[in-house]
């Protein structure tokens, strides 16, 4: 049910933005994320930015994974 791709906004117009996905660029609509800023990552689905990626939460998720992984590793060392 719809994979989206995270893309970095490099240029912002009124209703659209140019985004970069690992060096390739394309134009996406930003009507659904009017507050997006250059430098933000957005989730793109069918040519539209649907959501802005929240960096704090993203970091937090990675930390959670790492915590679990580290816990296991240290257990393994024990």
């Amino acid at each position: 049910m719809c994979v989206g791709v995270p893309a970095k906004v490099v240029k912002k117009n009124e209703y659209s933005a140019i985004v970069d996905v690992m060096g390739s660029q394309t134009t996406v609509g930003i009507i659904f994320v009017p507050d997006v800023n250059i430098g933000d990552y957005v989730i793109v689905h069918a040519g539209q930015a649907m959501s802005i990626v929240d960096e704090t939460y993203a970091k937090q998720s990675v930390e959670e994974w790492r915590k679990l992984v580290d816990a296991r590793n240290s257990e393994a060392i024990k």
């Binding site: 995270p6 970095k8 990552y41 990626v53 960096e55 993203a58 970091k59 998720s61 990675v62 994974w65 790492r66 679990l68 992984v69 296991r72 590793n73």
Partner: peptide, 23 residues
Amino acid sequence: MLEILKQSSNPEICKPLVEAVIE
């Protein structure tokens, strides 16, 4: 931020996660 996003497919994280889930 790209570095953070990339972690989600990092085998060093993913492989232990598999083990954690199995456990």
